[in-house]
Write a protein that binds this DNA or RNA. Structure first.
Lengths: 241, 241
DNA sequence: CCTTTGAGGTACTATGCAGTACCGTTTAAA
DNA sequence: TTTAAACGGTACTGCATAGTACCTCAAAGG
């Protein structure tokens, strides 16, 4: 079976193509059905968790018989693994941190905003909820999720910082700096979303948080004083400063 | 039934006491057994999750009959809730952020170290794993956990910052500042522990991370330049600065 | 001392689950 | 057109589970 990325298929004339390769109709239908199963299973796993989700219920929603489901995924574990891999690929997709030309503060604000958006996206939140309890029972799966999802985002951020802020920070450890930026930008929202403690943040709140994270980051890591935002310009600063 | 805190009982002479109140032996034994059940149930829930854990298995490990278990907790949900409440109380217990007399940097380092210790403690990590997937199915329970556990720690940190750093920071929002300190100190370790991605951090690593978080925090939030650690003294700084 | 209460033991009910067997029908590939 | 595979439907097998019934025994409380 050829490599394929997150259930993407295209039909061209007589034949069905996938990633430029020509395949039979039978196989292409199998891939489509596979993707459909994963989508349905994802809903169930997200809502009920691994133990709570039922293969029978998934098969029922799929429409066909149980035999069909089992012919694609020989066990619940393998179906779950497929969901995790597919979702991790979906989460990392489409990273563009390009905000060339703006000031360092604006660039970092934009980056922080992207990070926040990504970490509070429903699919990410639900994936976090789903994957956390697996670390005791299936550590390898958690590792796969991390490598294919968050790890790549981490890497992109570190590379972005190295490329665009190489001379502006006092550290060479761009991975650590990136982690700190992520922490400053998303930590609050992450826990609030994960635990459903408050209504999802509005775009305005996300903007404000992103800007604040950028300011804090530049003050903490900025090499030159001109990078440090004046503290009386920051939201939450005392009036008496 | 009188209020009692995280399975604490003391025997004094003829009578059994709890929080200064005199109670019968029968009742005290019930409380002891209750605490014992919670302890056993906690293990099971931590290892297998809510759906994965089995009341029968818990009853078996308890030793008695199932009837006994059900006479204490009329359903699996209520037992789970009791475990959550008890554990949340245990997590927050014993907060002492008193490091009077040291320099601001040393105080913040000590505070960060405490935060790290608390967030990477096995009981906290396992509780996070257990509680995350509950937010869809039992949001109220997650709320209770948060209010009785992390929320109180948050509050302690904010109050500590207000009391000891009231004049040193440029912000009045001590809750936000506290959250940012927590993020800087524990975010990395939190995810690594939660997902079991690497070996638990050594005390040395925790010390280093705590110090770094304190430095970053003071540079980001410090009101006066003398609070900002020289950047060539920080681990990970470039040699060429 | 006697009564009430709780706990142990065992067997039970009802339910839901993952996974299988069988068989007739559809359908893609040759 | 033929053929082999995949699909749909239904019924099934074990198995584990939450929770119940019932009886016996120990012990706390008055």
């Amino acid at each position: 079976m050829p490599f394929f990325e997150s259930s993407y298929l295209a039909k061209g004339g007589e034949w069905y193509h996938i990633g430029g390769m020509k395949i039979g109709k039978r196989e292409s239908q199998r891939l489509l059905k596979r993707a459909q199963i994963i989508a349905i299973a994802r809903e169930h796993f997200f809502e009920k968790g691994f133990e709570g989700a039922s293969m029978s219920a998934i098969a029922a929603q799929l429409g066909g018989s149980k035999r069909t489901l089992w012919s694609y995924f020989p066990s619940k574990e393998e179906l779950f693994a497929a969901v995790v891999e597919d979702t991790a690929a979906g989460i990392r997709g489409g990273i563009d941190f390009s905000a060339v030309g703006d000031s360092p503060l604006d660039q970092l604000t934009h980056l922080s905003r992207t990070i926040i958006e990504r970490m509070t996206a429903p699919i990410a939140v639900q994936m976090f909820r789903l994957i956390s309890p697996m670390s005791e029972r299936n550590p390898e799966l958690v590792r796969i999720f991390f490598e294919r999802g968050p790890r790549r985002t981490q890497k992109s951020i570190a590379e972005y910082l190295r490329a665009n802020f190489g001379d502006l920070l006092w550290t060479d450890d761009y991975w650590q700096a990136g982690d700190d930026l992520v922490a400053l930008a998303a930590s609050n929202f992450h826990f609030e979303s994960l635990w459903g403690l408050s209504n999802p943040p509005t775009p305005k709140q996300k903007d404000a948080r992103a800007r604040r994270a950028a300011i804090l980051f530049l003050r903490a890591y900025g090499r030159h004083p001109e990078l440090w935002a004046p503290i009386d310009k920051v939201d939450g600063a005392r009036e008496t400063v």
